[in-house]
Write a protein that binds this DNA or RNA. Structure first.
Lengths: 230, 230
DNA sequence: TACCCTAATATTGTTGACAATCAGAGAAAA
DNA sequence: TTTTCTCTGATTGTCAACAATATTAGGGTA
């Protein structure tokens, strides 16, 4: 109700990104300018600018004169995302393990509690987002904003990839106990163990992907359209 | 003359980025919409969109109602850029050394010749750009477009950093023989040596920076304005 | 002379209308 | 019945005028 102040393009970006992170926006979904204008009560200029930024982050695809759709990363792109994540996150971990403080550990543990609470209260959307944000929180401890921003991009793309190729309804973006173990290793100052856990954790997620049967969401309509002939 | 086709915002971005890479656009330079419209013969809409993208890449800074200036990275940002570059470039090297082909080596050697030629013909701007592009060419061999794009950003920022804090007129972005040695190590398949050379090369550039005496370029006018009192 | 306040100018930000392009419906022909 | 063509509606792209804001120049006062 107090939303008098007009939203900026950054705000629109954040809202769209959050929806992607919570997997409430499926890959292939068409985003018309008009609909977003209505949803966020902003002008077309703002939406248009947001589109440009979202495209830069590989969250949407813009086709000339045909508008915006939520991106559908290819298997090759998925491979690159995980390769990049392993490189960046392990690189940041090396710094973090040297500089981490007790306060940081506490914050991470608080986050773990929030994850658990969301899962137990069956707030799946929130849980999915929190598991993604765990990695960002961890990364922030290394104090490199450039790598943080890059990793943020990668986490959003991971969400799209899992939505496309991930396991079914149970769809755990990050399986239960991995994060806790990682924090424990970090608290113990055991770098090589923490590193192994992190790599293993990411590789596990990647290994669970199934590229074979899925179709890009965007083609669903056309698939159904021809399905009635069979 | 055949430039009838209107330039897109990507084109404008590229042109501005190239100018930064060649250090023909100093940090702190004011970029008015109107002037860029005139230079590139495009509408304000296009320039404005280009600004948004350039801001995302940390190449310019946008201040509300005050327009765009070429970014002046702080010493802390410089530190983060080099930290990121070492992480990303060594990570990519690990992949490259496994997959590199003779054709790739040849392309790298061709590039080295081009660098040398530019230096000998005293085409400094071209030489500066080529030394930057060497790192991008090397990165492309690893076949990860996401990391490529990120590194591209970092290379542009490096150019700004060297312009601000780098050594004087001689200002070599990448000193003479380092690139050739790196290619030799790569051709020999000697990973640890290539890795050492790469890290050493980047650290050398960083070590040559001098943060103390420089002032942000943008303040030059005000500095001169008060200089006459002395 | 130095400082501050006010007015004029220039630059950026926003909105709306108009032009260009695309998707889908419907009709005509094979 | 199926295919193709055209036309209509809807969506995106572009531009120009207008509003808001910042910078600069000038005049007045201490």
């Amino acid at each position: 109700m107090a939303n008098r102040a007009a939203l900026t393009e950054e705000d629109v970006c954040t809202r769209v990104r959050d929806s992607v992170l919570e997997q409430r926006l499926a890959p292939g979904t068409k985003l018309t300018e008009e609909s977003l204008c209505a949803v966020f009560s902003v002008g077309r200029t703002t939406v248009r600018r947001a589109f440009l930024l979202l495209k830069r982050d590989n969250i949407i695809e813009l086709q000339k004169n045909r508008g915006a759709v939520v991106a559908s990363p290819s298997p090759e792109e998925a491979r690159q995302v995980f390769e990049s994540r392993i490189l960046v996150e392990t690189g940041l971990l090396k710094t973090t393990i040297r500089a981490v403080t007790l306060t940081d550990i506490e914050r991470l543990r608080d986050h773990l509690l929030a994850e658990k609470a969301a899962l137990e209260s069956a707030d799946i959307a929130r849980w999915i987002r929190l598991t993604g944000e765990f990695h960002l929180l961890l990364a922030k401890l290394a104090g490199n904003e450039l790598l943080d921003a890059f990793l943020e991009q990668l986490v959003f793309q991971t969400s799209l990839i899992v939505a496309l190729y991930g396991p079914g309804e149970t769809g755990p973006n990050c399986s239960g106990d991995d994060h806790r173990q990682l924090v424990d290793a970090l608290a113990a100052g055991n770098h090589s163990h923490a590193n192994d856990l992190l790599v293993q954790h990411l590789q596990e997620i990647e290994a669970q992907l199934d590229f074979a049967p899925q179709q890009p969401f965007g083609d669903l309509q056309s698939i159904f359209g021809e399905a009635k002939t069979a």
